[in-house]
Simulated scan of single mutants.
Amino acid sequence: MSLKKNLHSLSEKLESLTPAEGLAFLSDLFRGKVVFSTSLGQEDQVITQMIASNFLPINIFSLDTGRLFPETLDLIARTESKYNTKIKVLYPERDSVENLVHKQGINGFYDSVENRKSCCHVRKVEPLKRALLGNSVWVTGLRAEQSANRSEMNKIEWDESNQIIKFNPLLDWTYIQMMEYIEKKNIPYNPLHDKGFTSIGCAPCTRAILPGEDARAGRWWWEDSKKECGLHAK
């Protein structure tokens, strides 16, 4: 049976499991074929803790776009040290980045949504596809509360673009629920979160949000869009 046809039965099974139990179930069912993409956000740190503390056979990777905050890079080292685990870091292809910068300039992503999406594609989407290739399940830290677009997602769904099962274990968690878990488990997180950066991506494309703003308002703050880079397109 194809991976896609397994979704309904998997969904029924996962409905009764906690996020940690769901991760354990899938990592056992698809042993060696489950990967977790972390951007080092608070949600992702929760999932990393669940994977590492339960010694689950899930490979953790992160995408270094070349434009990340120093605090984000430092958090990779702190997380690896705390949980005695390795986070595989993937980089965009050198020629693709050089061609992109030659074509649109070092900060050309500010000029148009099309340019910004081209930058995201080179620096994030292409490396992600490399990381997911050959795997069966892609674990993410998406939460429905984060945006209107993400509120329409399911805990487990089919990612057509990457031909892979996508598992969002924290999809129905609230921000308060997440922060209580982080405090209880003493999970390290990016200090920028305490400065109003609710969603942290590349440094030139991220700002702190203002009171009352949507959690994703600080991402690509100069444009009016769905605030997605293409990794989680619906």
Rank of each mutant, 00 (worst) to 15 (best):
F167W: 04
K82F: 01
N115H: 12
S27A: 12
E98C: 00
S147V: 09
L73N: 04
M1P: 06
Q42P: 05
V125A: 08
Y91G: 00
K155R: 15
I200T: 12
G218T: 02
K185M: 13
V46S: 05
A233V: 06
L75S: 04
T79D: 08
L90K: 10
N115P: 08
L170R: 13
T65D: 09
K5G: 07
I176C: 03
S27I: 04
G105M: 08
H232N: 07
V122Y: 04
G134I: 09
I47K: 09
F55P: 01
T79V: 13
H232R: 13
K155Y: 02
N168F: 00
A52E: 03
L128E: 12
C119F: 02
T85L: 15
Y189Q: 13
E213V: 15
K124T: 02
R130N: 10
Q42V: 15
E71N: 12
L68T: 02
D28N: 08
V139Y: 08
R216I: 14
I182D: 10
L56R: 02
L75E: 00
M153W: 11
I200R: 01
V101E: 13
T174D: 14
L10A: 10
R31F: 10
G218P: 04
F69C: 06
L132M: 07
H193M: 03
N168K: 05
E183M: 08
V89T: 14
S81V: 01
T38C: 09
S112C: 10
L63V: 12
A208Q: 11
G196L: 03
Y175A: 14
T174V: 11
E160C: 12
Q146N: 06
A208Y: 14
V137L: 06
T198I: 07
C205N: 01
P188N: 08
N99E: 11
F25W: 01
V125F: 02
L29A: 15
L210V: 00
E80K: 00
Q163F: 08
H121N: 15
S199Q: 09
E43I: 07
V101A: 08
R116T: 08
A203H: 01
N84C: 07
N135Y: 01
V137A: 10
H121E: 14
Q45D: 00
E223D: 15
P204T: 04
P191I: 00
A148P: 10
I106R: 14
G196Y: 01
C120L: 09
G201R: 02
D214K: 13
S199D: 09
G141H: 05
G32F: 01
S53N: 15
K129I: 06
Q104H: 06
K124D: 04
P57S: 02
N54M: 04
P191H: 13
W138V: 12
G230F: 00
P92L: 04
